[in-house]
Design a binder for these strands. Structure first.
Ligand code: FES
Ligand code: FES
Lengths: 145, 145
DNA sequence: AACATAAAAGAGTTTATTGTCTTTTATTGC
DNA sequence: GCAATAAAAGACAATAAACTCTTTTATGTT
């Protein structure tokens, strides 16, 4: 496994995809998203339902419905997506799995882990969803395969 | 979940424990290790069997038997433990879960992920098992709770 | 109002991870 | 050789993660 759960990977890719696809208005359906990010459709649907409830993305039912982003959700940071799906264990937990990561009673790798955790957190914190549309537009980066 | 699987966390804590406990000769039994690192005994046994087969730790059956480290295994790096248990996906895989992490066809966060991955890898690469006995001896760090 | 569309919700199955228990094999000391 | 010890191995059991399928609800169109 990678750093994040599969669920979280799908969530991040989907959020990028939706933002990119609806930046200039309109909505995008679950089928197109699933195809576009290479994920199982119904499983992704569950994930997006959850992100919708948490106001990280927007959705509308019925004809011309689909998922989209508004001014508020476009400003969301990737750290909010990760926390919503995987929780904050990655940012706060001990790398060796001790019950509590402690400054006064640290594990042998505490300082190293702490630095890495902070780096990951900062990367996700500094990344708002809308920032990546440009790259995706230019075809510099991808969300599939 | 944290960065590593539970199995991997137990493996790392156990290896530190064994190294610390047998640095001056002797062996240590599975019960004492499990208690010492706060892990389920029989599950840990499986993990240690595997690490033994991979020559990351040593073991001996029978009276006065147990787990221990020799000159070779003490020089093992933590990265070898992690790779043995969790594979190298953490060091090579795409953070967004794309099938291949690619320099020419990267995901939106490729550069950031790459830097973080390298940092994790270096930390584990630069950490030989024997280096931590001192801290554990002094009670500066811990492996339990 | 009737119909079509598309997400939401519900109810599963499958697979992987984590954890437990029992039996076997190897080694030591008597 | 025999008994005691301790890891190795095998066979499960429980839980969580990942994935699938079906039904319901909301909304727009005619
Ligand atoms: S105690 Fe292990 S990372 Fe802080
Ligand atoms: S392509 Fe995603 S981390 Fe390299």
């Amino acid at each position: 496994m990678g750093i994040f759960s599969k669920t979280c990977e799908y969530a991040m890719r989907a959020v990028f995809f939706i933002a990119h696809r609806t930046a200039n208005g309109g909505r995008v359906g679950i089928k197109e998203i699933a195809t576009g990010i290479n994920s199982p459709e119904h499983f992704l649907a569950k994930i997006l339902q959850d992100l919708g409830r948490r106001n990280i993305i927007k959705s509308a039912k019925g004809p011309n419905g689909g998922f989209f982003m508004d001014d508020v959700t476009l400003k969301r940071r990737l750290s909010e997506v990760v926390e919503a799906v995987d929780g904050n264990g990655l940012f706060t937990g001990c790398g060796l799995g001790l019950d509590y990561c402690s400054e006064t009673d640290p594990c042998p790798l505490h300082n190293e882990f702490k630095a890495i955790r902070e780096r990951i957190h900062q990367m996700l914190e500094n990344t708002t969803i809308e920032e990546f549309n440009e790259d995706l537009n230019l075809g510099v980066t991808r969300l599939k395969k």
